[in-house]
Simulated scan of single mutants.
Amino acid sequence: MTYGRSSALRAYGCVAAGLLVLTGCSAGGDGKGGGADRTPSATGTSAPAGSAPAASEPAPSGTSTAQRILELDESKQPKTRAEARALLARIVIGQEVLGPEVVRSSPFESDPARWPVLGEDCVWRTSRLPEDVLATSTRYFHVPAKEGHGRVQINATVTVHRNRQESGWETANAMEEVLRCPDQRLKAGEELKNLWGAPFSQGEQMNRWTEDAFLESGEYVSSESGGPHPYIWSQGQFGPVTVAVAVKGAEGFTVEALNTLVAEGTGRMFLNAEQELGKAAG
C-alpha cells in the first residue's frame, strides 16, 4: 500500500529537519539572509523572517519503512535513451507544483545532451552524458523579487540511469564532491560556500520517503544577489531514477520557506517516479 502526497512531504520534512539540526541550521540559522517581516512560502502563506523551521510531524504510527515505499518493478525500467526521456518527462515537475509565486526562468530547461561535472578545481562545468546515464533534465524556476524579498532560484532535476546500482553511485559521488569541495564555483560571479552534506539510507535518520537520500546545505553568494544566503539541496532515489531540488535563497526568505519549496518539489517527483516504476500494491 503506497502513501499519499502529504505523507511524503511529512517524511521528507523529518529528514530535512534532521540535517538542519546536525548542521546547526548553518544555511541561515545565524540570521544571514533574513530581512523582511514576512516571507513568501511555496503555499502562498507567510512566515516570520528569521524564524526557525517548524517541527516536522511524525510519520503515521505503525507504518514501517518497507510499507511506505513501493517495490521497484524492474520490468518497467527504461532500456533505451528514448524510453528514458519519455519516463523523465512524466516525472519532472512544472512550476505549479511549487506554488503560485513560482514562475519559469529563462532558460527553462538544461541541454539534454549535457551533464554537470565538478572539476578538480571545484568549478562546475558541463560534459557529455556518461555511459551510465540514459537521460537527465534540469528545469529552472524562481520566485521573482519584489518589495520585501529578493529573487529565489529553484532547480529541479531528474536523472534516469540504467539500473539501481548506477543511480546509487550518483548519491555516493555527491557526498564525495562535498567532502572534496566545500566551496564550489557554479559560474562566474556565483559560488557556494561552507557546504555540508549527509547521506541517509532508507530507515536512517527518519528517512522513510526514499531508498537513498542526500541532503546538502551551505551558503550561496553571487555578484547579482549578494549574500551569503541559505542554500539547500536534496536528492532522493527510486530504482534507476534520482530526483533532486536545489534552492538558492535570497534576502527576506527563512530556511523554513526554502525547505518547503524543496520538500514540495522533491516529494512530488519521488511519488511520480514511484508511480511510474513501482509494483502495483497488492
Results as ranks from 00 to 15, higher is better:
residue 61 S to V: 03
residue 79 K to F: 01
residue 106 S to M: 10
residue 121 D to H: 02
residue 213 A to W: 07
residue 267 G to W: 01
residue 16 A to D: 11
residue 142 H to R: 15
residue 220 Y to H: 08
residue 107 P to H: 06
residue 156 A to Y: 00
residue 34 G to C: 14
residue 203 G to N: 14
residue 282 G to M: 03
residue 242 T to Q: 15
residue 36 A to Y: 07
residue 13 G to N: 12
residue 51 S to G: 08
residue 222 S to W: 03
residue 252 G to Q: 02
residue 176 E to N: 04
residue 159 T to M: 12
residue 216 E to Q: 13
residue 130 P to T: 04
residue 202 Q to T: 11
residue 155 N to D: 02
residue 27 A to P: 04
residue 135 A to G: 03
residue 5 R to Q: 14
residue 145 A to F: 04
residue 19 L to S: 03
residue 99 G to L: 00
residue 251 E to I: 09
residue 91 I to A: 04
residue 270 F to L: 15
residue 189 G to F: 07
residue 64 S to M: 10
residue 209 W to A: 14
residue 172 A to G: 07
residue 121 D to L: 02
residue 177 E to T: 03
residue 250 A to F: 02
residue 245 V to S: 13
residue 241 V to Y: 05
residue 237 Q to D: 04
residue 114 R to M: 08
residue 152 V to D: 09
residue 1 M to L: 11
residue 96 E to N: 10
residue 160 V to E: 11
residue 139 R to A: 10
residue 30 D to C: 12
residue 93 I to S: 09
residue 78 P to L: 05
residue 248 K to N: 08
residue 265 G to N: 06
residue 238 F to E: 06
residue 259 N to E: 07
residue 148 G to I: 07
residue 73 D to Y: 03
residue 97 V to D: 08
residue 134 L to I: 05
residue 135 A to Q: 08
residue 155 N to R: 06
residue 254 T to L: 04
residue 93 I to K: 04
residue 221 V to D: 03
residue 102 V to R: 01
residue 140 Y to D: 04
residue 149 H to Y: 02
residue 274 E to K: 04
residue 236 G to L: 07
residue 68 R to V: 12
residue 148 G to Y: 13
residue 134 L to R: 06
residue 179 L to F: 11
residue 137 S to L: 15
residue 239 G to S: 00
residue 153 Q to I: 13
residue 207 N to E: 13
residue 18 G to V: 01
residue 1 M to I: 09
residue 233 W to R: 11
residue 174 A to S: 13
residue 128 R to Q: 14
residue 228 P to Q: 00
residue 38 R to H: 07
residue 119 G to S: 14
residue 112 P to E: 04
residue 232 I to Y: 05
